[in-house]
Amino acid sequence: MNVRTKHIPQHMLYVNGVTVSFDGFKALNNLSFVVAPGELRAIIGPNGAGKTTMMDVITGKVKPNQGDVFFRDTIDLTQHDEADIANLGIGRKFQKPTVIESLSIFENLELALVGNRGVFKSLFHTLSATQLARINEIIALVGLSERRNELAGALSHGQKQWLEIGMLLIQDPDLLLVDEPAAGMTDHETAMTAKLLREIAGERSVVVVEHDMEFIKALDCPVTVLHEGRVLAEGTLDQVQNNEQVIEVYLGR
């Protein structure tokens, strides 16, 4: 799509020994894993396994008590805030689709478009022809061309999820964190989303947190299982589904 001049790092994301505790409760407990450049990775785990906290740590919303989080080998993410991290090239999709409901689909994407985020630059901002083309390209990619001027609030749940993915893509991130993209989608939409995420990966690293096993199967990628704030198992979906410990955690004691 666009020429990348940055060097390819060894690890896109490197998480080592991260611990986060809230009032003594360890939401993350010595969590370690790495994501390679261009990798698509699914993360599963029962409720309270620490999936959302993990995303919060990577995107700067929560500072870890211990451990290292590095992006592109050298950037220490624990030293940056949300806006910084977004501009460094990490996009995040929330569990509940959050688009700007009182702006049009076009304006939502315009807002997310990569570029200067300064106050005064925004005041006198005008779109260039290339930027306009880029917005149109993404609108087409997420299948919303006919509704470009409608308010985002008028979209269906699934379409909002897609618009939000579009907003992530147009930020041109190196790493996408996607929290439960298939929630509330029809089977057809779920399949389309899996296809879209597979296409995106390769050029970018994508980490997907999901509950829906059908969706994970459709993603066809390595799976990491979280439990009580740390990694329980890693491997293909078949491998982790046949893992004794995983079965025990999921089926209950």
């Binding site: 806006a83 977004a86 959050t98 688009v99 009182s102 702006l103 807002l111 930020q171």
Partner: peptide, 13 residues
């Protein structure tokens, strides 16, 4: 409408 979304898009709210 969505303060944290704006932050995660990269704006200094």
């Amino acid at each position: 409408d969505a303060e944290s979304r704006t932050r995660f898009v990269g704006y200094r709210v």
